[in-house]
Amino acid sequence: MTLISVDRVSFGYTAERRILDDVSFAMESGDTVGLVGESGSGKTTLLRLLLGLARPDSGTITFDGASLDPRNAAFMRQFRRQAQIVFQDPYSSLDPRQKISSIIAEPLRSLRIPGDHRQMVADALSSVGLDADAAGRYPHQFSGGQRQRIAIARAIVAGPRLLLADEAVSALDLTTKIRIVELLASLGTRMSLLFVSHDIGVVAALCRRIVILERSRIVESGDTAEVLARPQHPYTQRLLASVPRLSLKDTRS
C-alpha cells in the first residue's frame, strides 16, 4: 500500500532557480527509503514539503491516499501524529531549557494524545536505549549520540507510521553513527523510514530502496542493491566512485 506519493512536485522562488523540479516518487508502507544527494540538491526542501511545513508550487503530495494540505488543520493534526522527523544537529534539535521529559512529551501534549504520558515517555526512552532517569535531566547533560537518541524518542513517542530522518547520523562520530544506524534499522521494522543522507554507505546499510537527487531532480531510483550494483546515471556512478571502499564493503550485507 502506498504511504507517500509525491507527484510532479516543483518548488522554488523563481523558475530559473528551482529547488525541486518535477520530482515524483512513491513510498510503500513499511518500506525504508534512502534519499541521497549532495548539499543543495533539494533534499531538505523535499522533507519540509513532506512534513507539510511548506506547500509545493506545483504538483501534489498525498499521504495515505489523502492530499497533504498544510491549511487543513484537522488533517494536519492526524498527519502530525503519523509522521515525525529526526534532525541532523542533535544540539539545535533539543530545546536547551526543557527537561528531556518535556521534550519527548511535546507531541503527546500538542497532539492531545490520551494516555499516561509519563509512561509513554519512559517507553520511548527505553526503545532508544536510554534509562528512564534521563527524563529528569537537561539536554546539555548528554553527549551528541545520546541527544540523537532523545530526538528519536521524541519522534517515535506518538507512534508514527513514518519516520523522516534528515542527515540524522551525519554529525556523529563513527562508532556512535553505527549505533544510531542500528537503532534506526530496528525501528525500521516497526515503521516506514525515509532516510535523507549524502552518505551512500549508511543508506546502503539501512534502506531497501534508494532515490537519488541531483540538482533539484530525481536522477535515479530503485532497489538499493540493484542501483548500487548497476548504477545507470552518471551522477550515481560518480557518487559510488567517491565512496570509501571500506564502508561500502562493511555495509553491503
Binding site: L51, L53, M76, R77, R80, R81, A83, Q84, I85, F87, Q88, D89, S92, S93, L94, D95, Q98, S102, I103, E106, P107, S110, L111, A151, R154, A158
Partner: peptide, 21 residues
C-alpha cells in the same frame, strides 16, 4: 533552531511555541 521545527511537526501552535520555547 531545529527544535522549533520539531515543535511545529509535533503539532504545537505558534502561540504555544512562543510560550514554551
Amino acid at each position: 533552531m531545529d527544535y522549533i521545527t520539531a515543535a511545529r511537526t509535533s503539532g504545537s501552535s505558534w502561540p504555544k511555541i512562543v510560550a514554551i520555547h
